[in-house]
Simulated assay, not measured.
Amino acid sequence: MTDAEWAEIRSAMPVPAWLLKRGGRPEAYCHREMLDAVRYLVDNGVKWMALPVDFPYWRAVYDFFRRWRACDYVRELHECLRHTARERAGRNAEPSAGIVDSQSVDASETVGEDSRGYDGGKSRDGRKRHILTDTEGLLLEVTVTTADVHDSKAAPALLETFMDQPGRLLKLVWVDSAYQGPALAKAFARHGVRIEVVRRSDGHRGFVVLARRWVVERTLCATRRSVCIPGSAGRNSEGGFWAG
């Protein structure tokens, strides 16, 4: 990270318990180095043990990552940064409208058959990521399924996960024609969210930029690599964020 990027991220991190004298041990490594190490691993697809030696010891980085995943700190940090970005753009911290779409990707040979499927429409054998973004393209929620799960089947769970968090204001979601059916409409109506289908004009051929939907397509293109980090409630006394 650049110094400017680190300044943004550090200001979004909650103060760890040991600095507030609420227990726990001070951490041995700078969080900036830890975050850089995790980002390097995700971006390059290397093994934990293959992290370059100029990062902290790989086992320390792995334990750091596991703690963040277990306590859902990645989501917490992302939410804070997203709120800041929206407020700087003159918008409310929480969006009232969003866009849903999905993307099927091939899985490697090491992915078992129990967690992969075949998407006949896209000719992809692997998994599918379903995402919800705001109108700026900022990621609100993501869920991963096997590639054979239809978009309309995964969308209700995607919405439920997002709307279960306190303070949500979502009222309108733009989708493509795959997101239809009484079960999906009922699930969205339960949260007071209206669905609006953005259709492609029959008179156009080839690639066409569609209103609203181009935003989520751009986000999918920008997130070719992704990490699925399951969340869990709770926070331990040593799990705060800080820089050494």
Rank of each mutant, 00 (worst) to 15 (best):
L170S: 00
T223L: 10
W6A: 08
G98I: 05
I195R: 05
H191S: 06
D151Y: 01
G120W: 01
L184M: 09
D148I: 12
Y29L: 14
T133I: 08
P95N: 06
E5Q: 08
K171E: 10
P166W: 02
A185G: 08
E136Y: 08
C80Q: 15
A7C: 03
V216K: 04
P56N: 08
Y40I: 00
R218N: 13
K21M: 11
W18D: 02
R82H: 09
V208I: 13
N236M: 13
R86L: 06
F64M: 12
A12Q: 10
S102G: 03
E27C: 10
C80S: 15
G117R: 09
Y40P: 02
Q180S: 06
A17F: 11
V144W: 07
W242G: 12
D176C: 01
V175G: 03
G181K: 01
G23D: 09
L158A: 00
R190A: 08
W18G: 04
C221G: 13
T2K: 05
A50W: 15
L35R: 05
L51W: 04
W174Y: 14
A89K: 12
L210H: 11
F55E: 02
C71Q: 11
D148C: 11
V61N: 06
P26F: 02
T161Y: 10
S201N: 14
R91P: 00
V38H: 12
D36C: 01
V149M: 01
S108N: 05
G137K: 04
V227S: 06
V173H: 01
S102K: 02
V175L: 04
G137V: 06
R235D: 05
R224S: 12
G23C: 05
L139E: 04
R194Q: 12
A97V: 10
D176I: 11
